[in-house]
Design a protein around this nucleic acid. Sequence first.
DNA 1: TTGAAAGCGCTAACAC
DNA 2: GTGTTAGCGCTTTCAA
Lengths: 333, 333
Amino acid sequence: MGITIRDVAREAGVSTATVSRALRGLPHVDPQTREHVARVAAELDYVASANASRLASGRQGTVAVITPSLSRWFFATVLSGISEVLQAQDLDLLVHSIGDAPSPSLPGERRLRGRVDGVIAVALPTPDARRLGSIGVPLSVIGATVPAVASVTIDDVEAARTATAHLISLGHERIGLIGSGDVATDSAGTWRMAGFRAAMEEAGIPVDARLQADGGFTVDGGETAMAALLARPERPTAVFALADEMAFGAMRSLRRHGLRPGQDVALIGIDGHDLSGLLDLSTVAQPVADMGRIAAEQVLGQWRGDVPVPVRVPTTLMARGSTLPAPDPVALG
Amino acid sequence: MGITIRDVAREAGVSTATVSRALRGLPHVDPQTREHVARVAAELDYVASANASRLASGRQGTVAVITPSLSRWFFATVLSGISEVLQAQDLDLLVHSIGDAPSPSLPGERRLRGRVDGVIAVALPTPDARRLGSIGVPLSVIGATVPAVASVTIDDVEAARTATAHLISLGHERIGLIGSGDVATDSAGTWRMAGFRAAMEEAGIPVDARLQADGGFTVDGGETAMAALLARPERPTAVFALADEMAFGAMRSLRRHGLRPGQDVALIGIDGHDLSGLLDLSTVAQPVADMGRIAAEQVLGQWRGDVPVPVRVPTTLMARGSTLPAPDPVALG
DNA sequence: TTGAAAGCGCTAACAC
DNA sequence: GTGTTAGCGCTTTCAA
């Protein structure tokens, strides 16, 4: 490094302790002294060594975000919400992407312990999220709930039920599902599948396992899944994708087969992706950036002593061109 | 913290210096000793304090990424490429989003100095990027070139020229441009505008300032810009958007006006956005994730003594439905 | 090959 | 209100 607290102390004619207090705005410092020290520090262009102060104080001023992906829309958007809040507090944002591997490489409490004083887990399977709790710093999980841990979620069951019910209300009965096969128990995927089943049951429509395909929560996966559904002897007349990006892939597949979303096959997703409007995709929207902001606020709050609570944010059905109402039989007749 | 290097040393019956060497794989350690120390450390679940070792060694094991956005596709994708490389090296990734503010809040060399030993600047205006060089650690900039600084760029002039020439080759002459007004000098935006002008000149088509609109590099901005162009007395028959996301916005606007991209108005962007294929948008694609990976490799390389060099990656014209060839007059006749 | 010991730059008691 | 002084936990000469 260059210039240290001692240089400032010497130059200002005070002790290092005073410099430290003055610069950090602690009480018990004469205003005159404080200002003088500040001026000297500025002149010298002094910046405290983060390592030294963290080592000495035990505070890290850092929040880690553990996420399965950095590029997929949901995660990128969550991250920007988080970053917005953290940066406003001058906190460091340490990002760790675990990849979408089946058995994701958790950074391990080991690597994190002592390095951060807060962590936000985005859409991790509940067991993993829970594991992060053992680091002993405030934790907030997005997309899952863990007892005694702060979280921000939508009601996944309800969102899926809404989406499915929307299709049913349009008169569809052969409804396909593009989900994810390797869904860990207690993940959003599981809940959404449950919501789907619930809606079907409520409507008295039997769930046909052959109308379900794995889309792996990606655009490409969604395309493959839709292609598989279209290859079934009895094609679905409507499809519910557990996420908008899978629905996008499904759209691509439909087009390749010369089918129009909304006219030939109804389609709905969950997310409220930025481009869902442009693609005219019906969806159940969630306030993604807000979810990130809230999670960040939750860790700040826990530092102030707040009790960790689960926060549930609302979703909104956005019916668009991909779920056109069936032509009115009366009007037709 | 919990267990320290001294605990390990005591338990293993060696000095802390030996523990340090053994665990870091330094030479001059008896294999026996090394293994014994490793075993003890594992048993104790010892993790070295990052702060302490960074303070003592001066190495930070951290790379900062400075980016205008975390959620926009280009930046999110770049980031995931960067993260991939850094995580493979067990390096910390510190993310700082400066927002798209007109006068972005650079984190300041001050905040970074001594905290990181490498920085990657994504799509910052050249002056800002250059400023980051003064931190004194390896730097790599994406989307700009700075003398004596590592960088990874596409040939923005050429990409824009290609896009524009593609429109011209289709027979268009009244070509609109959706750009960005506040383009700092030497930004990708400037170069792309230059490429546009060059292509027009080469074709002997005068550039009409009234056919240019500001899209601010966002979807919404692109929509507004296109709406403005459509309101001109002489509508463009083709539009070149400096980025795919602006082109997406333009598509939305076209649709609202009952116009079809590719049939009523030709449209092309730059990026090769994930969803450009689905939207049937013609584009000049750049290998975005690769650009992130390369930038990360560049800082690793500089640590090993590599001389910083500018890397230029290739782009590919992807002609799709939004730039349909004009119907062949001969065939028509 | 290993150990002793002096820091790295700052914070936090505790005195004054 | 301010200074003294131990550390924080590790790395790194320098000796042995």
